[in-house]
Design a protein around this nucleic acid. Sequence first.
DNA 1: GTCTATACAAAGATAGAC
DNA 2: GTCTATCTTTGTATAGAC
Lengths: 180, 180
Amino acid sequence: MAQELTQTGGYNAFSFNHIAERVGIKKPSVIHHYPTKEALGKAVVQRYRETFEAALQSIACDSDKTAFQAFEFYCTPYTDFGASNDKVCLCGALAGEFMALPDDVKKEVKQFFEDHILWLEGILKRGKKAGEFSFKEKPNILAKLILDSLQGALIVKRATGDGDQVHQIIAALKSRLIGN
Amino acid sequence: MAQELTQTGGYNAFSFNHIAERVGIKKPSVIHHYPTKEALGKAVVQRYRETFEAALQSIACDSDKTAFQAFEFYCTPYTDFGASNDKVCLCGALAGEFMALPDDVKKEVKQFFEDHILWLEGILKRGKKAGEFSFKEKPNILAKLILDSLQGALIVKRATGDGDQVHQIIAALKSRLIGN
DNA sequence: GTCTATACAAAGATAGAC
DNA sequence: GTCTATCTTTGTATAGAC
């Protein structure tokens, strides 16, 4: 509930009251579960990050999957967000107002991005070693380029309303990985 | 003043009072110039967009400059934002909280992105025709990829604190344009 | 766990004096 | 153009009953 509101309008656009209305209880009942907005914000990002990362870990450790399949799996949430017309990645939304976030929320967002870069870097190395991928950049830099492109694609796409944009960016990234 | 506050914390993180304090006047004096927050927000984004676009137009029409030089010129504001540790592109910040923005502000942000994609597309076409650039994607799609990468790089970089990231992304984009 | 009631601060906005 | 004073709403948060 808080996650949806944050994905659409950011951290400063939601309140205990908004959550309460959606859940069907009153404001103090929400506060009973999360004593401050910072605690609520942290919990939401933390859950988002951990859910995401558990899925990434399981696919990274699955030796049945090729690096390319792992990359395709990574792209599915971005495709889903891109298919909606009001949602972006939770951390992409929060990053726009980063300096206005409480410290605990900042830390979660930071860790989210860092973990994703590390994961992508691992997949890129694996794919290059296996001969699936061919690229000349350092894996770390290409990982950043992929993450930045996808995050950027989501927020720009939502503003322009260009429904194809996310697909196009993913296709361009894929062809860069296998082609060159 | 409002621009700086918005670049760091987004639309919902600044108020008439914040502006007033920075400028050294009182809240109602600010409201005298911009009767509503929506009007202030619109004026700020509009000025940002028009300043940006005037510079882009002048370089695009300058036949002394190569397409590659025009692209380098395009990247300079991103480099500057990347060199700060708290600022991103104004429209990148606003895009994160897009669904919580007033309509007039939304329109300005949308137009900003659309104009940039068009401008980049023009430069890409010119560079390919002149033999400066070699790429196989459609210019429109590569233009989106460039904009998305740069916008994404700024917001991710600010969250992670990775000072080199924006430079690395720009270098990777350049080598993609001329190399391949 | 959920509620009513309430405190307190901040935000957007207006009226009217100087 | 700028100010003081004021209004209204909203937001975070607490106290205490059920």
